[in-house]
Computed example of a mutant assay.
Amino acid sequence: MKNNYVNFLVGLFVLFGIGALVFMSITIGGASVSNSGNYTLVAKFENSSGLKEGAFVEMSGVRVGLIQSINYDPKAYESVVKISLDNAITVPDDSIASIRTSGIIGDRFVKISTGGSEVNMADGEEFIETESSISIEELISKYMFSQDK
């Protein structure tokens, strides 16, 4: 009888541990079961080098969303970035989406600089103005190989 009780407690402890691991992995990974509380905005960049799916989106220094997908548009020769934001977040339609780096050599993320318009963007709308990522290598090579005569 006592052996069955110990086995039950061990099994319960193992199930609790597995549940905790699943919960932590979903929470840390930023995954969600449904997309019901989010809406998507689109930003097109000439260069989205270093930006990855799942990277964060920031407004006023606060993380408000995630990069849903990054695709290439062969007709416009641009990268198309889909941004997933919570429904509680409103973005004025004259806002600017730019790719920034967290720290000196950190990960890339999208920063949304809010505009002054009273009209907000709706699901599926595209940013009018974007700023691509800055490549340190390109800046250094332009500086090193430019010759002022």
Rank of each mutant, 00 (worst) to 15 (best):
S133M: 08
S48T: 04
E125T: 11
K2G: 15
S48Y: 07
E137M: 12
N120F: 06
I105R: 11
I26C: 08
V10R: 11
I28C: 03
V10K: 13
E137Y: 12
S34Q: 09
N7G: 02
N47L: 06
D86Y: 07
S141V: 07
N4V: 11
I112N: 02
I18K: 01
S102A: 11
G106H: 09
N87A: 01
D123V: 10
I96T: 14
M24R: 10
G17D: 10
S32Y: 03
T101R: 07
S48P: 02
F23G: 00
T114E: 09
N120T: 03
I67T: 04
Q147G: 08
S36N: 08
S146Q: 10
V81Y: 01
S146Y: 14
G37P: 05
F13N: 11
I96C: 06
V10N: 08
E125P: 02
S36D: 14
F16G: 13
E138G: 02
S48W: 02
N38D: 13
I105A: 10
R100N: 12
L51G: 01
Y5G: 07
G124R: 00
G116R: 10
D73Q: 05
N3L: 15
N3P: 04
T101S: 12
R63L: 09
S69K: 15
I70Q: 05
I112K: 03
A97M: 00
L9R: 08
G116E: 15
L85S: 04
R108T: 09
D123S: 06
E78R: 15
S48M: 04
L21A: 11
G50L: 08
S49R: 06
A97V: 00
I128E: 13
G50Q: 09
R100H: 12
P74E: 07
D73I: 06
V91T: 02
A55Y: 02
T101H: 01
G106I: 03
L12N: 06
T90A: 09
D94S: 03
V33I: 13
F23Y: 13
F127I: 05
K44N: 09
T27F: 15
L21D: 00
K75T: 14
F45R: 04
I83V: 07
N47K: 01
M59F: 01
A55P: 06
V42G: 00
F109E: 06
V64R: 03
V64K: 04
D107W: 07
G106F: 12
M24N: 10
G65Y: 03
F23I: 06
A88N: 07
I67L: 03
I96Q: 05
F145V: 00
S25A: 13
E129I: 10
N38S: 09
